[in-house]
Amino acid sequence: DRHTIHIGDITIHLEGFSEEELKLAEELIKRGIHLEEVKRILEELYR
């Protein structure tokens, strides 16, 4: 499954994450956390 996060003019595609995980990812990215770090956090929390 493919999910999309929109932040301003930026569109990020993250596959294989639930709606809850994507909301967390979006919040972290909006707070300035680097995408690679966001992915690592999600994997630690949900895998």
Rank of each mutant, 00 (worst) to 15 (best):
I12M: 09
R47Y: 10
G32R: 00
D9N: 13
E37D: 14
R40G: 03
E20G: 05
E36P: 08
Y46H: 12
I10N: 08
L14P: 01
E15V: 13
E19R: 05
E19N: 08
E44L: 05
R2P: 15
E21I: 14
H34W: 08
L45G: 02
L24M: 15
K30E: 06
L14F: 13
I5Q: 03
A25Y: 04
R47D: 13
E27V: 10
L28D: 00
R2L: 13
E36S: 10
L28C: 02
S18P: 07
G16N: 10
E20L: 08
I10A: 02
S18L: 13
H6G: 09
H3E: 12
D1F: 01
I10F: 13
H34A: 14
S18D: 07
E44F: 08
S18K: 07
L28M: 12
L24F: 11
S18W: 08
L42S: 00
I10G: 07
E27H: 06
L22I: 12
E43H: 05
K30S: 10
E37W: 11
R31V: 11
G32D: 03
G16T: 11
L14Y: 04
E20N: 06
L28P: 00
I29R: 01
L45A: 08
L35A: 09
G8W: 09
E44Q: 03
L14K: 01
K23S: 08
R31K: 11
E44Y: 07
I5C: 02
L45M: 03
S18T: 13
E15A: 11
I12E: 03
T11H: 11
K23F: 09
E36R: 04
S18R: 07
H13T: 12
L35E: 06
I7T: 08
L24T: 14
K23A: 07
L35F: 11
G32T: 04
E26C: 06
D1K: 01
E20T: 09
T11G: 08
L24K: 04
E15G: 10
L22M: 10
H13D: 12
E44V: 04
I29Y: 04
G16V: 12
E21V: 13
L24E: 04
H13L: 10
G8R: 01
E36D: 10
E44M: 02
E21H: 11
L35Y: 08
E44I: 07
E27L: 10
E21W: 15
A25P: 00
E21K: 01
E27K: 09
Y46T: 02
I5G: 04
E43Q: 03
I33F: 11
I41A: 05
V38W: 05
G32V: 07
G16H: 09
I33L: 13
F17N: 03
R47N: 15
H13K: 11
L14H: 03
G8H: 08
S18M: 06
I5Y: 02
R40T: 03
L14M: 10
E37Q: 05
K39Q: 11
I41E: 03
H34R: 10
L28F: 06
R47G: 15
T11R: 05
E15M: 12
E36Q: 07
S18F: 06
I41M: 11
D9Q: 08
E36T: 08
L45F: 06
R2D: 12
A25E: 01
L42V: 09
Y46D: 07
D9E: 13
I7M: 11
H13G: 05
E20I: 06
E43D: 13
H3M: 04
D9I: 10
I29C: 12
A25F: 14
V38I: 12
K39A: 09
L28A: 02
H3W: 14
I5N: 03
I10W: 10
A25L: 13
E20R: 04
R40Y: 05
L22G: 06
G16A: 07
L14Q: 02
E19D: 13
I41W: 14
I5D: 06
H6S: 08
F17P: 03
E36N: 07
T11C: 05
I41N: 01
L22T: 05
R47S: 15
K30F: 14
I29P: 00
E15C: 13
R47M: 15
E43Y: 14
H6C: 12
L24Y: 14
K23Q: 12
L42W: 01
R31I: 07
I5S: 05
L42Q: 00
E20C: 13
E15L: 11
I7F: 10
I5V: 04
D1T: 02
L42M: 06
K30D: 05
E20F: 06
L35Q: 04
E26Y: 15
L28W: 07
R31C: 15
K39L: 15
T4Y: 05
D9T: 06
E20Y: 08
E37V: 12
L35K: 04
D9R: 01
I12K: 05
E26S: 10
D9H: 14
I5M: 07
H34T: 15
E21D: 06
E36K: 04
L22Y: 13
H13Q: 12
I41L: 10
I5H: 04
I12H: 04
I12A: 09
R40V: 05
F17L: 07
H3G: 12
